[in-house]
Design a binder for these strands. Structure first.
Lengths: 226, 226
DNA sequence: GTCTATAGCAGGATAGAC
DNA sequence: GTCTATCCTGCTATAGAC
């Protein structure tokens, strides 16, 4: 009597569904995943998806709203936190902070994988989630980045050139994040902590100096000098 | 009598199926496309897919073998043709030739779209087509590029650093090719001939000098000097 | 809020006429 | 080589018991 709801696990199922759905949608894509597969993996009933989210599409959108966006904000915060203590951040500081936030930020490897997969899927074939992603995750970060870079590089007056620069930086970060199968297959490298540090240094160096400029003040020396 | 096969349109249907299938697979992804949709768009019978290719999966693989790979070879040839007349190509020559081959190469805009979509889909979730793509398209081009760069940049002895450089260049080219919706949405630019020339110059400049190095000897001057 | 059962339909694939 | 007709599986979604 009166103990109808113990309140301890209020909507555990809903949470579990979101996590499971994100993992499957990210790995295999929306159409390749069935509601059956999700509910089985989440160890709940087939009808649970419809009960909690209405239908499959809403579950997909909920994944973005409740998993992707918060994680994007975490990454964003990681970036701004790295920038905050710096007085007049150099271009190197900015790029390093950005690459660091994405590649070593405060999320698990699995989450990082989900994040980049979902982004690349939405870029290849935008759905209703694309707008959520753009407005609530990409654009805010993009604007912050733009402001930092404008301060650090006041000589670049051409707005368009600045945008292209930012896209180039993003392209490297995204690519090293989501082309893992390809990169691992060619380099034979695992994405361990060491390799990721190398990547961040490489991205910073490349973005600062390109192929030419004397390299190595940031790059780890993997071979003895000379 | 004796005119059993006029030979004029021998397997028109098969060709049409391949073209249509590539377009749909590239745009929407394998699972999002049904055989019914393909055959309707190709204006042929539902059973044609199974007759000509056995099943849906084989059709997908056939798209790679008969559409993607030949196009990849065209792009590759475009790159090597641009390199051939050069005596001792500089890094700038190499990058410009590569970016040019991908972004302005001898294929239609639609084909370029299909190409980058299929690549990014296979990178996000590799299927049996991934190996075809890697072995018959990516690796050969990658090796040529590696050799050219080794000659142009003999001072980079660290093999791993060289690989990371190549991936960075590819990342930009791919990104500017397949993130069109995002880039157009932010810059407001159409991918017309003019913008693409700008992109190639930007990629070359960025890969050569990064954000810093004095810019503009390659970049078009869209604003008056000063 | 969770479950079973099932409606209703779209999917891939095949058999067999032409 | 092309078509129609059809099988059957697996899908989303819902109704209704608990």
């Amino acid at each position: 009597m009166g103990i109808e709801n113990t309140k301890s696990p209020p909507d555990q199922t809903k949470e579990r569904l979101l996590k499971t759905a994100e993992s499957l949608f990210a790995t295999k894509g929306y159409y390749a995943v069935s509601v059956r597969e999700i509910t089985q993996a989440a160890e709940c009933n087939l009808a649970a998806v419809n009960y909690h989210f209405g239908n499959k599409q809403n579950l997909y959108l909920a994944v973005f709203r409740h998993c992707f966006i918060p994680r994007g904000k975490k990454i964003h915060r990681c970036f701004t936190n790295a920038m905050a203590p710096l007085d007049s951040p150099s271009t190197a500081d900015i790029i390093k902070a950005l690459a660091g936030a994405f590649l070593e930020g405060p999320i698990t490897e699995k989450e990082r994988f989900h994040h980049s997969q979902l982004i690349s899927r939405e870029m290849a074939a935008p759905t209703a989630a694309f707008n959520i992603l753009m407005e609530q995750a990409f654009r805010p970060l993009f604007n912050d980045l733009l402001n930092y870079l404008r301060t650090a590089l006041p000589e670049i007056k051409n707005e368009e050139m600045m945008l292209l620069n930012i896209f180039s930086i993003f392209s490297m970060i995204l690519h090293f994040s989501f082309a893992r199968p390809l990169i691992s297959s060619i380099t034979g490298q695992n994405y361990d902590k060491d390799f990721k540090t190398k990547l961040i240094n490489h991205i910073t160096d490349f973005a600062l100096h390109g192929l030419y400029g004397r390299r190595g003040f940031n790059a780890p020396r993997t071979q003895g000098p000379e």
